[in-house]
Every structure is written in structure tokens, then in C-alpha cells.
Amino acid sequence: MTPSRTWWPRLHLFELLDQRWYPAPLRDHCTNYLATIAQRMGIFDAVAPLLLRGLEAGGTDTVVDLGSGGGGPLPRLCDSLEREQGRRVRVLQSDLFPNEQARQRATATGAEYLEQPVDAMRVPAELRGMRTMFNALHHFRPEEARAVLADAQARGVPIGVFEVVERSPKGVISSLFIPLLVLAFTPMLRPLTLPRLFFTYAVPLLPLAIFWDGLVSTLRAHRPEELRRMTQSLTREGYTWEVGVAHKPGKPPVTYVLGLPASSTASNGRRG
């Protein structure tokens, strides 16, 4: 279980990926890197049972992923659900800044990536299914994060929000290794272009940019006790909220928020 101690207040410093002026090639590289890390390292493997619970509660086989960036871990998680549970899942990925390269990768994995921008605080009513967010809630200030959750509740659809970034000394120390990880994982990215190699190894602009955003992410992260207060303010009949930390051996702990329509009240989930 994550310690309840809050080491310092949440600091909403700027992340490069949030800036509209941030050059698209740099944005695409950063989101591609983050998606590759999530997929190759399986850092969200612990949440597969939570994803299944949300699908069952919503009576759906569709996942609407918000803030998808370069893609994320859903292809890996859906493969796991099909292999272990026999459950085939349709994946709709979306982002406020749609990514053409991510759309091509999504198509290659059997997912769909929407061309139009999607605001996670005001998701179009026609996008029905279980909503998910992976390492994206920290981009939102507390009142905005609450709006993301409230919008799902108002539509009566399940939502799962999952974060591996952690506002703690451990999280800050872990972020110091990000430049080394960028150097190690860049050869696995596709397409592997000369500019990408140049700005990674010759002029390390990309490792430094990803490091900055990673460090700021840990300072922005919402801690479990803050998320519990947030969801308690949303309590209403017919919809339940669960906040916890999911664990799997060999993988990092994942802080999660799971919102479930009334049909889920009989579910027995593990709380952290």
C-alpha cells in the first residue's frame, strides 16, 4: 500500500507536452517513447483485472481511451484479456492533440485512433464504452481532474484512471534515470529517423525534454488520499468509486481510480 504521508504539496509546473506551441515532431517523439515504454515494459500489467471489472460493469466490450498520446498500453492489456479471459475488446484511442504516427500504430494493432480532438473533461456523448486514462490525470489540475471523473459519472459509463507516476522522494529519484532509459529505448522506436537519432545521441535535446516532463509529472501527481477526497465529493446513488494501488510482482505499483455504474456494486475488488 502506498504510504498516506504527503511529502509536499502538489506543484502544477509546466510540461512541454501540454504546450500548444511545442513542435509536433518533438511531441510525436516524446509520446512515441512513452507509448513504447508502456508497451514493452508492461508497466500497467497490474490493472488488467480492473479493466475487466469496468467492462463488465458497463456491459461493454469497447474502451474509449482518453489522452492516448502515442498509443499507450492498451494493445498489451487487451491481448492479455483475450488470452486469459477470452474477452475481445474494441479500442478507441483519442487525444486533445491527435497524433498521425500514433494513428498508424493503432491501426497496425487493430485499434482505432480518432482524428478529431477529444477533451477528456467533455467527451462527446456518442463515444460510448469504458473510459480509460493512462498516466494522463496528472496533466489536470484538481478541479479539472474532478471534471474528468464527473463527466464519466454523468454519462453513466465506467472509467479507469491509472498512474505510475508518484509524488514522493522515490518518484523524484526514479525520474533521474529517465535520460538513460531514453538512450536505451530509442532504437526500439518506429520510425527510427536520422533526426530522432541526432537529437537523442548527438544533441540530447529529446532525453532532456522527456526528463523534464517526467520530473514535473512526479510533482504534479495526485496522491491516493487526494483522489479519495475527490471521489468522495462525487458520491451519489447508482455509481461507486474506488481508489487504490494495484500491484503485480516485478512491475511498478499503479495508483488507480475506478468508477463503476450501479451494476458493479456486487463486485469484489482489491483496494489499496
Score class of each variant (00 low, 15 high):
191 P>K: 14
168 S>R: 03
144 E>M: 09
243 V>C: 09
221 A>L: 10
152 A>T: 01
252 P>N: 06
221 A>N: 11
244 G>T: 03
219 L>P: 11
189 L>G: 14
205 L>D: 06
194 L>P: 05
174 S>I: 01
168 S>P: 06
255 T>H: 01
241 W>V: 02
175 S>Q: 10
185 F>W: 14
184 A>T: 03
141 R>G: 07
179 P>M: 12
217 S>W: 07
220 R>Y: 06
178 I>L: 10
229 R>V: 02
187 P>W: 05
252 P>V: 01
255 T>C: 04
250 G>Y: 05
243 V>I: 04
214 G>I: 03
148 V>N: 07
141 R>M: 11
242 E>Y: 11
145 A>H: 02
240 T>K: 01
138 H>M: 08
156 G>Y: 00
245 V>L: 07
209 A>L: 15
153 Q>G: 04
192 L>T: 13
218 T>E: 14
145 A>T: 04
231 T>G: 12
215 L>E: 09
227 L>A: 13
230 M>F: 02
201 Y>E: 12
181 L>W: 13
165 V>M: 09
172 V>Q: 13
175 S>F: 01
215 L>N: 03
167 R>P: 10
171 G>A: 15
205 L>S: 05
232 Q>T: 05
184 A>E: 02
144 E>F: 04
228 R>V: 08
184 A>W: 02
162 F>K: 04
190 R>H: 06
161 V>H: 04
185 F>P: 07
247 H>M: 01
255 T>M: 06
216 V>Y: 05
